[in-house]
Nucleic acid binder design. Structure first.
Length: 488
RNA sequence: GGCCCCGUCGUCUAGUGGCCUAGGACUCUGGCUUCUCAAGCCAGCUACGAGGGUUCGAAUCCCUUCGGGGCUGCCA
């Protein structure tokens, strides 16, 4: 490396508060985080709330909560501070204003008095004439006389950036060299008449001032890059100090549309409520647009940090696949220690009111977890899986209810009851022995037909955790009483 | 319309001129195991969008074409 005194790598995650953090946002945040951690750099968390219309306090609190839950920490930003703050754009308005005025003074920008209606009319005309719609430069060089006239009319100007002739050329770390001819990049607005900044101004100013070295963001921002670079120029930043850009491919829904609220579940909060593990979400999302390069797919956050490089990021969009997320989530659940599993599962049981959380219940849950661990793919499933242990009486689903009423089933349940009553050592091995003796040997049934009715009587469903273990957990008295009440 | 980006199994991907009769994972199908459901194991289906080049040789390089997406705002 020629440049040994390479500046510290600084990435930033800069969402705008338009709703809960979603899958696409988080994938970007994850890559920003992983890259910063991989390089020993810093991650800046910044809120792009230039649009004051939007309420942001609650949004920010939720975003912070989500990021923390996922295990994505930041070095500068809300809660932690930093030397380049504030990190809320709504608190940096004077900074943008000063820069816009500097641009004005230097002739890089100019006041534009065109009204929205006028602009729209002219754009329409351009479209009619089959020209590329965009600002036509009408106010680029207004005379003093024209300016006075506009002001007399009461017009308030916006500040518009002057795009010089030529082209912008930059190397995207994911896509390679990209060129935009300026004739396709019209003069753009930096600041509204009321003095509020636009994204293009704020994002560029902040990235420079916060010394961001690598901008990793969605590819929808690719074509706005020349405008940002134009702002860097106007700020007097040397080209060698421009941030590097890496435009990440989209995360799309199962159809070919961009993943959105209308198209699959996007809110990370939803995944959390369903019982997806944060490390599973991160693991899966990391695989959307990136791969470790070998056949590994189940990776830890540590491995992600160790292996993540921008060179290995793909340039083509990826479709979000719930099935694969579930597969990874299932793997991660199975790998949990019982203590960890318990800690994560308990909130689901309690908020659903399946249990109140008493010591007795918690210890029963803990004993039951090993037999359901490999049977669930989302933590939320512990609720239906274990609820038979905590209800006074099982409710049969339609199918199972009918089945247990059949004559054959009734015979089985009766025989099971009879063979179980003498069993005092209520361990699953003794239960199994008694049932095999009476049903398999005694009645000559196939295991499947023998244990089915018992399973229904005990758990309420023909699908359940392993029967004998379930019975041991339920306890002798409750098992016998359930068998009795299943007999009609 | 213009500009820009993208194009390997259904999906996520490996692949950077020969190791590719294209590998892995998820899904799906069949089987084994089995007290149900899972888990596990085994097997199988299925892909380089198309057409031209370059080369002894192309998924990999070039061109064209088709398809998808983004942008084209006083949204971000």
């Amino acid at each position: 490396m020629a440049d040994l005194a390479k500046r510290e790598i600084r990435t930033r995650f800069a969402p705008s508060p338009t709703g809960d953090l979603h899958v696409g946002n988080i994938r970007t945040a994850l890559f920003d985080w992983a890259y910063a951690r991989h390089t020993g750099g810093k991650l800046i968390f910044r809120i792009e709330d230039t649009d004051r219309e939007r309420v942001t306090d609650e949004y920010i609190a939720r975003a912070i909560d989500t990021l923390k839950w996922l295990g994505l920490n930041w070095d500068e930003g809300p809660e932690v501070g930093g030397s380049y703050g504030p990190y809320l754009q709504s608190q940096r308005l004077e900074i943008y204003s000063e820069w816009a005025n500097t641009f004005l003074k230097n002739g890089d920008a100019y006041n534009c008095y065109c009204s929205t209606e006028e602009l729209e009319a002219r754009r329409e005309a351009q479209r009619q004439a089959n020209q590329a719609p965009g600002y036509d430069g009408k106010c680029r060089s207004l005379t003093g006389e024209e300016i006075s006239r506009y002001q007399a009319e009461g017009r308030k100007p916006v500040i518009r950036m002057r795009m010089p002739d030529g082209e912008t050329r930059f190397t995207d770390l994911i896509r390679g060299e990209v060129v935009f001819e300026h004739k396709y990049v019209p003069d753009f607005v930096l600041m509204r008449a009321d003095g509020s900044p636009l994204y293009t101004l704020a994002v560029a100013v902040d990235d420079v001032l916060m010394k961001v070295t690598h901008v990793l963001r969605g590819e929808d921002l690719l074509s706005s890059t020349p405008r940002q670079i134009r702002v860097y120029q106007a700020m007097g930043v040397a080209p060698s100090d421009y941030p590097e850009f890496a435009h990440l491919p989209f995360v799309m829904g199962t159809d070919n549309a961009k993943l959105s609220k209308r198209n699959g579940e996007v809110s990370i909060a939803w995944y959390r409520e369903e019982g997806f593990l944060p490390e599973a979400i991160c693991n899966y999302l990391a695989l959307l647009g990136w791969s470790p390069g070998d056949d590994r797919e189940n990776i830890t956050m540590e491995e992600l940090v160790q292996l993540f490089t921008i060179e290995r990021v793909n340039s083509s969009p990826a479709r979000f696949d719930m099935k694969k997320l579930e597969a990874i989530n299932g793997d991660k659940i199975r790998a949990l220690s019982i203590e960890d599993f318990l800690e994560r599962a308990l909130p689901f049981l309690i908020t659903s009111k399946a249990i109140t959380g008493s010591d007795a219940q918690v210890s029963l849950v803990k004993k039951a977890l090993p037999i359901i661990q490999e049977r669930i793919v989302r933590l939320k499933e512990v609720i239906p899986m274990l609820s038979f242990l905590f209800v006074d009486q099982v409710e049969f689903d339609a199918n199972s209810g009918a089945k247990i009423g059949e004559a054959d089933a009734q015979k089985v349940v009766a025989a099971a009851l009879e063979s179980l009553e003498p069993v005092s050592d209520w361990s699953h091995t003794h239960i199994e022995t008694a049932l095999r003796n009476s049903l398999i040997d005694g009645l000559g049934l196939k295991p499947r037909n023998a244990f089915g009715p018992v399973r229904i009587a005990i758990t309420g469903s023909h699908i359940s955790p392993p029967l004998f273990e379930s019975m041991e957990l339920l306890g002798r008295e409750r098992c016998l009483s359930r068998l009795k009440s299943a007999i009609r």
